[in-house]
Nucleic acid binder design. Sequence first.
DNA 1: TGCTAAGTTTCATATTTATGAAACATTTGA
DNA 2: TCAAATGTTTCATAAATATGAAACTTAGCA
Lengths: 311, 311
Amino acid sequence: MVRKALLGQLSDLDIRLLRVFRAVVECGGMAAAELELNIGRSTISRHVKDLETRLGLTLCHRGRGGFALTAEGQAVYDATLRLVAALDGFRSDVDDLHRRLTGTLVLALFDKTVSNPASHLHDALGAFHDAAPDAAIEMHVHGINTIERGVLDNQFQVGIIPAHRPSSALDYLPLFGEHMDLYVAPGHPLFATGESDNDDEAIRRHAYAGLGYHSPNMEKSHAMRLRRQATAYDQEAVAILVRSGRYLGYLPDHYARAFVERGQMRRIDNPRFQYDVEFAAIVRHAPKPSRMVQTFLDSLVKAHPQAVMPG
Amino acid sequence: MVRKALLGQLSDLDIRLLRVFRAVVECGGMAAAELELNIGRSTISRHVKDLETRLGLTLCHRGRGGFALTAEGQAVYDATLRLVAALDGFRSDVDDLHRRLTGTLVLALFDKTVSNPASHLHDALGAFHDAAPDAAIEMHVHGINTIERGVLDNQFQVGIIPAHRPSSALDYLPLFGEHMDLYVAPGHPLFATGESDNDDEAIRRHAYAGLGYHSPNMEKSHAMRLRRQATAYDQEAVAILVRSGRYLGYLPDHYARAFVERGQMRRIDNPRFQYDVEFAAIVRHAPKPSRMVQTFLDSLVKAHPQAVMPG
DNA sequence: TGCTAAGTTTCATATTTATGAAACATTTGA
DNA sequence: TCAAATGTTTCATAAATATGAAACTTAGCA
């Protein structure tokens, strides 16, 4: 039976075709997929056609009239996502093997910490290098959720994030603090004068730009009932939104200082609207960190003597 | 970085190498894997070598001295099993799509039912064909566990098995009965005379050949405290064991009749040791069967009017 | 010590796959 | 109605992959 013979060939060679198909679906057509895949439309067309032949299914209707998945195409697309996830899982497993073998420290940290005077991360890395000169270091910058997920998934061995809602699957190591204040920029009604800084209701009246994921930023803005009208997923984006003169927003003092010195931002001097963040290193609770990772954690602690060890 | 470039290529082409590697591991070396893979040892050697190069890992030690996985090799082997399972899952999904699309009835049944006069399965299939002439039929014969698992996994749409321990994930449709008796063959001490058939202890004194998986056979033999000294996984194997003249064993009367008529077996005439089995069609509880499958189930019911519908 | 078994490496060949160019088909929108 | 956009098919070429044969290496066993 021809179908079975063709299906028998599936999986060793057709994954590339499946990846092409997935790109076509996600781009909504072959023309757009050309940019994504960086191969010609005729090649893409042939790959999708070949995949249809191999699977014995019509996956989509496409042409000048537009692109639409068939019901079978949708099912194959869904199955492809699961398969690609498994492939990524395999790759991740092998990556992890390598890290364990080659002694690579994989670190993910939150953005905009380099300018924080309380952060001695650079000292910790220096000490770690002295302790383990042969170890390689891989450093990533991501948002809080990505870092947490990545630590849990073994993509990162250590994460450094502003501590917020804790998870029992993670261990936290407090490191340094960060002071957060509300800022405004020229063009904002509150910029010109400081008289209303102490007027809580006046502050609440204005549009606020805040982070769109769970974080100390979100917690505080909810607590202070600030009216979020712009959502950002990066502090750089918050800074840009503040700079627009239409929003107030929280920024770390050390980060905002450069803007203040240039007259590009002004701090809202109201102690009720300020908050402090504690940055912590996170590792998976189980399995316990390797010796190399523990060496780095020790370096972190030594570099931040003021931090309070948790109970 | 070379490693990343190579790893980037992983998964579209290397799966065949991973399959080869898996076969080598499971065969305990390349020589034995030749038979399994049906390719030459030099090709196998090169594939494993290529895989090691691509992954940047030494997977095994092999040669005249023997075969042994490294720790990394074991991890890659484990990861490969997960990957292959995902590939099989994909294929299974596509297969299921096909069945839904082409109107294929996929049926799995227990062996040795064709000779049972109470079974009107052939009539049901005829009626089904009349009702759905374009539907294709795929028929499998397996043991009870395989059928149950296959129905749950969507490999089979309908299973027909002797009902035993029920599962809430399955719906049961009683169809027909089967009478089971103990049999012995020439050469067995109980074959020559029937006087001791009614002597329960005499029967228990003899070695018994029974099925090695949960089934009415296992339930009854446990209840009657028969001493199982040979384990089979198919009734044909039980028949062979009985024919050896060393064991008594349960067989369906309709199946054993041919042997009895040839003087090759004798029934143990003891009502306490007899039992009846009820065959039932099983389908997954959810999702509900398709119209085509329901059509077949209706045909089954019409073909077995004596069966009792469950409460 | 020498033979055998298991595995490695190189060479040559065949097959498969990928790709862009060019020409064509269909549908939509101006 | 015609041009443009999207996709299809064929051709020619290049690259990648798979394979067995042959020669070689290493280790174990008689």
